[in-house]
Design a protein around this nucleic acid. Sequence first.
DNA 1: GTCTATAATTTGATAGAC
DNA 2: GTCTATCAAATTATAGAC
Lengths: 200, 200
Amino acid sequence: MTLAAVKPIYWQVNTQVGDQVPDTREILMDTAERSIRLGGYNAVSFRELADALGIKSASVHYYFRKKEDLGVALVDRYSQRFFAVLEKRADGARTAEALLDAYCQTYRTALTSSDAICLCGMLGAETSGLPDAVSSAVRTFFRANLEWLVDAMPKGLDPAAKTARASHVLAALQGAMMLSHNMDDISVFDAAAEVVKAGL
Amino acid sequence: MTLAAVKPIYWQVNTQVGDQVPDTREILMDTAERSIRLGGYNAVSFRELADALGIKSASVHYYFRKKEDLGVALVDRYSQRFFAVLEKRADGARTAEALLDAYCQTYRTALTSSDAICLCGMLGAETSGLPDAVSSAVRTFFRANLEWLVDAMPKGLDPAAKTARASHVLAALQGAMMLSHNMDDISVFDAAAEVVKAGL
DNA sequence: GTCTATAATTTGATAGAC
DNA sequence: GTCTATCAAATTATAGAC
């Protein structure tokens, strides 16, 4: 077997027989997102991305001229997917309790399905060291989260209380992802989520 | 004025007339801690540290042989200081409410006095990309936090409820620091902290 | 304690051929 | 789209002089 016959790492880890072939740009983004969610923005390099796909770093620059462009594209895609999943999960929900449960479940799945924290949780922490365009996209994600949560709050609450509780829910779940992943204990996330839901 | 007469950045920013002179090792740690808390572990380099003090990077290696050693020393010092401040603040506290308020206040001060998130919040997020010794030290910090919180819970609660609420408090405050700093809005932290305290 | 000097590696990025 | 070739800069780290 020649070296060329060895499949790039992405395929060894993330695919199975019958999988559709994602295009190169998509695979690059999958690989980069995973690295960032595990180790942060600086944990991804064009060279390592290229190696994972079996191409050269110059080819990665064809898809994303600068690293900053990759970062923004990742946050945008992540945000779209997150809210798509959230809306689907919250579709039948009629009560504030059900909406909040759907919200918590969406974050839980983000954590467990990737065994990594939220992309924006990581980039949000690193925000001061990131290109402006990236940290700006992250802030947009958080603002959208807060707006969704405010709308999901019980109708009786006054606006100030809604805002305060929305901040609490988002903060608690983001922190719970970090803590749970750091301590390698999903019960940490579940415990925090339970208290969040009980506080409604 | 010669170039040598220009004081290194640390002194321009962090000192005032009458300040005691911290030793080089301490200043290096102050500078490194600030960089990490703003941009993450990879945001600090031996060269930039050296520049900030007006020395050479080889001299930084005299104090910390490897970057990993610096990381561990930072977490240990941070942890000691955190609990020293916490114990002082919680000194007169007799009720669970007072203890929790002291705990929240300690985190709030960590955020506002540095305009940066918790050192361990940052390193906790990046944990998968860090040297084992560093992420291990961070985990120790979190475990100590949870133990302190469990002990601070109302006596009536059963052990499982104490553990769950402790996880929630730590997660919520860590997330609140991240979110508040990212959105540059201290009211986000305060709102989350209020809900945390009200939930007791 | 601090320096010079240096090594080995990695990184982000570009020009231009195919 | 992917490549070769290349660059300038930065990074971690060490050896040894003063």
